[in-house]
Structure formats: structure tokens, C-alpha cells
Simulated scan of single mutants.
Amino acid sequence: MPLHVPPAPAPALRSVLAALGSPTAVREARTPTLRAAQGPLSPELPLPVHVLEHVTPGGTSPTRLAGWRFMIRGGERALAAADTMLTPDGWAFSHFFEGPYIASTERALRHAEAMPMPCQPRLLSVPELYMLTLWLHRDCTDDGAEGPLAPADLLVPLAPAPPGIAAHRPHRVAELLQVLTLRLTPAPLLRSPA
């Protein structure tokens, strides 16, 4: 089933297009693949990036929209990604980057397209664990910027995932939040015997 990719805000897309059109921005990017690319580059597949800052004991975990990520395609594959961020003046280009999350995101999206349920792809970052997941939100009518984690949603950890969490294995929200709660809860201090 095709994924229902929400449209990115027009200013976010324009900021990425302007950065791609700027030889200075591309040359100064820390992405050797992007600097060496031949032919046209295009920003595709905009995904809203949400941040999970904490997991609540009740299992409801608020997220906040942190930006939009565009896969930068050159030829047949994604070479890099471009992040945008919300500033007081609106959406602005943040940076280009490459690394393992590019291929991992593409792989997870290919698997998601083969799933029988319609969903809206998003990215969910868990900064405390240096973890990124593909968030498959079931409400395809949301605009991408809104919508909390819902029980029917799936989270697919991207590689590299933290130790003990399998990459590319879909998890129901409650299942993965339980694992994250254990990881994010500080261990009690042990007292030495008196």
C-alpha cells in the first residue's frame, strides 16, 4: 500500500532547494558523496522529524515537531539528507548530512510500503538513546506536524539501533515505549551494607 507522505511546508522545501542551488552550501557540506555527485540533485520524500523527550509512566509520550528531513536523491538512490528547522522567521535550512540512517530510512520505507495498512511515515528521534525510528502513524489525515503517538502506530528502529533493540523490526508503540522506559529510567543506587 502506498505511504501517505504529508506535504512539507513550502518554505522548508524552498530553503532546501536554495541550499542545493548554492555552491557554497554544497561545497561546505560534510557529505563527500554530495560534493562528488554528478548531475541534478533533488529533495524528495519529506518526513516530519518529531522528538520524544521523555516517556511518561502512563505510557503517553508527548512529541514535538523539530523539523523536516528531505532525502537528497541523485540518480537512483538517496545520497544524503537535508534537515530544516523552525526559526522565529519560519522554516530554514539547517544542514546536509549522510551516514547509516540514509540507507536505513530507505530500507524501512520500502518495507512499510509493503505493509497492508495505510500509514503516514514520520521520523521519531529519542535523543537520550541516540535512537531514530520510522514512525508509521495510522491517521493519514494528520498534517505531519500534529498527532500524538497512538496505540495503533508502529515504530521501526533504524540502524544503528541501541544495544538490545533490533533494527528494522516493527514494534507497537506501547511495546517499544515499555523498552524505552526501562532504558531511560535511572537505576536505583545500591547502598552498601552497614
Rank of each mutant, 00 (worst) to 15 (best):
S94C: 04
W68I: 04
S125I: 01
S125T: 10
Q178S: 14
E44G: 04
P162V: 08
P162K: 09
D139L: 11
G74C: 06
D139A: 11
G58T: 04
G74Q: 03
A92F: 08
G59M: 05
P162Q: 10
P48W: 02
V49Y: 10
P43V: 02
H111F: 09
W135L: 10
R110G: 01
R110S: 13
A112Q: 11
L154E: 11
P151M: 08
H137D: 04
P118T: 07
T84K: 03
L41K: 10
S125E: 13
L52E: 11
A152T: 15
A161K: 00
G75T: 12
R77I: 01
L34A: 06
R107V: 07
I72H: 07
R73S: 09
H95G: 00
G99L: 00
L79K: 03
P62Q: 08
M131V: 02
H137C: 11
P48E: 03
R172G: 12
A92V: 11
E175M: 07
P62C: 04
V173C: 15
G144E: 05
S104H: 07
G144R: 15
Y101T: 06
W135V: 08
L154Q: 15
P148R: 11
L47G: 05
V156K: 13
P157A: 08
P170I: 12
H95T: 11
R77H: 15
R138W: 00
G164N: 09
V179E: 07
E98K: 07
E76G: 07
S104G: 06
M71T: 05
L52M: 13
I165S: 03
E128A: 14
G147A: 10
P163M: 03
A36E: 12
P48A: 09
P46C: 06
F96P: 13
H95F: 10
V55H: 04
I102C: 03
A36W: 00
L52P: 01
S125F: 01
E98Q: 14
L149D: 12
A145W: 00
L41A: 05
T105H: 08
L109F: 11
L65M: 05
E128C: 02
G164P: 03
L132E: 15
G144Q: 13
D139V: 15
T63R: 07
V51Q: 15
P40L: 15
A81M: 01
V55C: 07
L45D: 02
G39H: 12
H54E: 15
G99E: 00
A78D: 08
L79Q: 06
